[in-house]
C-alpha cells in the first residue's frame, strides 16, 4: 500500500497552462476525491498520476519512487474509466485476466485471483459472458474487478459512476466505499458530483481552473470553506452569498441592510450563509421575498430574493411548510457564528 505525493505539478498544452502547480500528499490507504466543475482539470490531473498524460513540470511520487517517466503499468496503478473501457470481444474472465496474462503470471494463479475477485464483486456467474450481455452496473463491477485483480498500489477512478442511473449510482457508491475499506488500497477518485465527493472521500480536493482551492475532510470543507468558490461548490442547495461592506461588527449590504457580524474586516466582503443556518425571526434583519417552495419532507426549501432586489436567496426550514403558510415575505436572523466571510476581491476566507 502506498502514498502518493505531488509537488508543484503543472500541465501545459502549447502555451496554455491548465494545471497550475498542484501540491498534495495522499496518505497510505486514504480515499481522496478530486472534485470540481467540468473543465477544471481534475481528469487531467488524475491521468497525469496514471501516466496517461505527460507531466509538464513538477514531480509525482508513488511511495519513494518518482514516477514521472514511468509507463502506467510500471507505476502499478489501476484505473477505472468512465465508460468502463471493457474489451468488447473478451469475456468477463478474459477482461479481468488480461493484465495478469501480460504480466506472465501462472495460469493457476490467474484463475485463482480472477475467481476470488469475481466472488467479491458477485460476478462469479457471469465470467463467461461478453460485456455487451451485461447490465450497466455489472459492467461497472467488471471494470472494478479488472482494477482489483492486479493488486495495485493505487486505484484511480475517473467519474466511474456517471453513466449509471441514480439508484444504481447510490448503490455502487456504497460498494466502492466498502471495497476500498476492505482492500485498504490508496485511492484517488475524480467526480463533478459533490454528493459523491462528500460521501466517499476521507479527504476532498476542490479544484477550480487548475488551482487547488482547498484540500481537507468533507466536514472541514463544509464548515470552514477556504474560498468563496468552495463555499459555493460544496453543499446542496448552495450557500447564499451576499456582497457588502464590513465595518465594526456589522456587514452592510448594497441594499443598506445591516447584518451584525463578528468579522474584523473593514473592506468589501462576500458574506456566505448556508440555507439551513438562516433563523426564522419576525425581527430578523434579512428580508426575503418568497417564491418557489420545495417540500422535501424532513425540511422545506424556500427560494426567493433579497427584499427589493433580484439577488437569489435560499432558506431551509425544518419541518413541512406550504406556500400558503409561508406567505409572501419572511425575515431571518443571520447568526454571526454561522457566517462565512470572504474577501470580495481575492475570494479568500477572512
Amino acid at each position: 500500500m502506498s502514498t502518493v505525493t505531488l509537488s508543484d505539478v503543472r500541465k501545459t498544452y502549447g502555451k496554455t497552462e491548465i494545471i497550475h502547480g498542484v501540491d498534495f500528499d495522499i496518505n497510505d490507504q486514504e480515499f481522496v476525491v478530486i472534485v470540481g466543475p467540468s473543465g477544471c482539470g481534475k481528469s487531467t490531473l488524475l491521468r497525469m498520476i496514471a501516466g496517461l498524460e505527460t507531466i509538464s513540470a513538477g514531480t509525482i511520487q508513488i511511495d519513494d519512487r518518482i514516477v514521472n517517466d514511468l509507463e502506467p503499468m510500471e507505476r502499478n496503478i489501476a484505473m477505472v474509466f468512465q465508460n468502463y473501457a471493457l474489451y468488447p470481444h473478451m469475456s468477463v474472465y478474459d477482461n479481468m485476466a488480461y493484465s495478469l496474462k501480460i504480466a506472465k503470471l501462472d495460469k493457476s494463479e490467474i484463475r485463482e485471483r480472477v475467481e476470488r475477485t469475481a466472488a467479491l464483486l458477485q460476478l462469479s456467474d457471469y465470467l463467461q459472458r461478453k460485456p455487451r450481455e451485461l447490465s450497466g452496473g455489472q459492467r461497472q463491477r467488471v471494470a472494478m474487478g479488472r482494477a482489483i485483480v492486479r493488486k495495485p498500489d493505487v486505484f484511480l477512478f475517473d467519474e466511474p459512476l456517471s453513466n449509471l442511473d441514480a439508484k444504481l449510482r447510490v448503490q455502487m457508491r456504497l460498494e466502492i466505499r466498502k471495497l476500498q475499506r476492505d482492500l485498504r488500497v490508496t485511492s484517488v477518485y475524480v467526480t463533478h458530483d459533490q454528493v459523491e465527493a462528500m460521501t466517499l472521500g476521507d479527504r476532498l480536493m476542490v479544484l477550480n481552473d487548475g488551482y487547488v482551492e482547498q484540500f481537507g475532510t468533507p466536514i472541514e470543507l463544509y464548515e470552514k470553506p477556504a474560498t468563496r468558490f468552495v463555499a459555493d461548490f460544496i453543499g446542496s442547495p448552495s450557500m447564499n452569498i451576499l456582497r457588502g461592506t464590513a465595518d465594526s461588527g456589522a456587514i452592510t449590504l448594497e441594499t443598506g441592510v445591516r447584518i451584525p457580524s463578528d468579522t474584523q474586516a473593514t473592506n468589501e466582503v462576500d458574506m456566505g450563509i448556508r440555507p439551513e443556518h438562516l433563523v426564522l425571526s419576525d425581527s430578523g434583519c434579512l428580508g426575503m421575498e418568497t417564491g418557489m417552495v420545495e417540500q422535501l419532507g424532513s425540511n422545506t426549501l424556500v427560494h426567493g430574493f433579497l427584499t427589493g432586489t433580484r439577488i437569489p436567496l435560499v432558506a431551509s426550514l425544518p419541518g413541512v411548510h406550504s406556500e400558503r403558510s409561508i406567505g409572501l415575505a419572511l425575515n431571518f436572523d443571520v447568526p454571526p457564528h454561522a457566517q462565512h466571510v470572504f474577501d470580495s476581491k481575492t475570494g479568500k476566507r477572512l
Binding site: 474509466f81 465508460n83 473501457a85 501480460i102 479488472r146
Partner: peptide, 18 residues
C-alpha cells in the same frame, strides 16, 4: 474505437503491438 480502450490496455501493461 474509444480512446479509453487504448488507455485501459496501457494501464494493463499492453505494449503497442500487444
Amino acid at each position: 474505437v474509444p480512446d479509453e480502450l487504448t488507455e485501459a490496455a496501457r494501464v494493463d501493461g499492453a505494449s503497442p503491438m500487444r
